[in-house]
Every structure is written in structure tokens, then in C-alpha cells.
Design a protein around this nucleic acid. Sequence first.
DNA 1: TCGGGCACGCAAAAACGTTGCGTCAGCGGG
DNA 2: CCCGCTGACGCAACGTTTTTGCGTGCCCGA
Lengths: 145, 145
Amino acid sequence: MPELDDLDRRLLELVSVDASRPLRELGDLVGLSPSAVQRRLTRLRASGVIRAEIAVLDPRAIGQAMTTLALVCLVSDESHHFAAFTGQIRAEPAVVTCYHVAGQWDFAVVIRTADFDGYRRIAERLFLTNPAVQRYETLPVYATV
Amino acid sequence: MPELDDLDRRLLELVSVDASRPLRELGDLVGLSPSAVQRRLTRLRASGVIRAEIAVLDPRAIGQAMTTLALVCLVSDESHHFAAFTGQIRAEPAVVTCYHVAGQWDFAVVIRTADFDGYRRIAERLFLTNPAVQRYETLPVYATV
DNA sequence: TCGGGCACGCAAAAACGTTGCGTCAGCGGG
DNA sequence: CCCGCTGACGCAACGTTTTTGCGTGCCCGA
């Protein structure tokens, strides 16, 4: 992972907002030729600084109107519960993000569903009937600020 | 917002993982010509189903090695605090996401900083010395599962 | 002072995105 | 029953963008 210079950082800032910009436009904005921009982006992709280029979808449009944050504590004295829990989390497509955290909780899980009932079903399977889970708390999301 | 058919959904699934795929390749995968794919994507962009196409960066590579989840309660009896708080949150570039939630807390804020001290500075300004904030809790992120 | 490595710009070539046109299927009204 | 309308499609021509090879200049270490 080589060091990033100022031009790299400006390019990253630009493509992190809009990855569909032509190289010529990026070049104009940072003062570089299209081919120089291209070589930098290729290098940044290869070195893993740019992980992916993805389309951001409107959750509502694809029938995922509800977002919920769940805070989870595992039963503390069994380490193999950790692997079991993360495995289940990873296998669940409704899970958008899962943070392993310090503090009062062990995990914070962001879950996207069509409606509250969809969340209830997932929470039942993932938390309520899960022997690895000691306690959990549901924080339905009103809005993303 | 028109209805999505099966081809739309398959295209969305593909571009939500990799938005840099050529139209020809997408067409091959769903059984459509490049121009038909293009027209569908244009429509999906115009109708807001596709919000943006962005590059996903490695936080570590851009000097944002630490992620923290903060749970926040505002002082409950003053509604103008809500606007003040969301305004401050929006103005803070280190805030990756902010959920307005129901349940035991009012907000869940995901914050990205270089290190713990960076978080401390932001938390001090945003939460500790903020009259709108009644109490808050810090959950440093070990890892993203 | 002299090479070697590296990033650059330029230009040609290949790939890709875009658009106009003709076709066809589905549908509602005459 | 048939006609015309609408909407989506494929094809092909066109314009733009990406890609690649090459020559130049700069910086650094010998």
C-alpha cells in the first residue's frame, strides 16, 4: 500500500461521490491528463484503496422500506458463540451492516426489511431463539439524517 | 416511480455490486441487448431507484482507521433541539451515518476518525458540550462483520 | 555528472455508451 | 374483428470514453 499524495486524495474524494465521471472531467478538476488519472485509479483499485464501484439504490424502491438497528449481547462465557453468531449474521441477506463493538453491547446490527413484521421474523430467528444471544434491544429507524 | 419487473431487479442486483460492468456484459447476464439495458438503467436513474454510482474506499487507506457507534438521547422537552442537533450532525464530515431511532435512544451515529483521540474531540464538541444532548454512550467498533 | 526509475502528456486504437429507426407484441376502442 | 396506439426491443451508425504504446522531463542516488 503506497502512500497517497494530494492528487490521489482529491481523485478519491471525487469518485467516492460519483464514480461515473469521465477521466477527462476528473483530469480537468485535478489538473491531470485523462491517461494520468486512469493510471492513478488503476493503481488505487489494484492496491485496494478503491474496494469497489457500486450503484446505491433507494431501499424503498426495492421493497426495503424499513431499517432497524439491533443491539446484541452474547452469553459471555462461551467463545464459540462468537463464530456461530457472526456466521448466522453473514448468511442473512437482510443484514446491511454488523459492527462488533466494545462497551455495553457486543454487536450492533443494521437490518433492512420490507416492514416491521419482516424484522420481527428475522429477530426471532437471529436473536430471540438463538442460544448464543443473552439479550438484545430493537431500535427501529424513523429516518436517516 | 413505475413498477420494477424481474429484469430490472436482476440488473439492480448486478450494478449494486459492480457498477462498472459494461452494458454488453449486463445484457448477456440478463438476456437483453446493450441498448435495452442502457434504457432500463437510464430510467432507473431518472426515477431515483439508482441514487448514485460511487467508489467504495478502504477507510484505513484514507486515514480513517477507527469507527465508533454513538447512541444519543436529547433533552426531551425541547423540540428545537432536534433541528439543532441534526444540523450539527450534518455539518460534521466524520459522521458516516446518523439514524433517528425509536426505543431507548433518539439517535445512533456512526463516526469515522483516524484514532480514538479524533473521536474524543468530536464527541466532546458534538455530545459532551452540547446542551441539546441529555446523555450518550460510546461503542467503539472492533470490526465490521 | 550521469543513469535509472517514475509519472507525465500525447496520440492512435479499441471498447464502450448513445441515439435514431424499424419491428413486434399487447391492449383498448371503433 | 381489425385498427391504431403505446412501449420495449434489436440493430446499426455515431460520438465519446477508455486503454495502450511511446517519447519526454524530472528527481534521486551513485
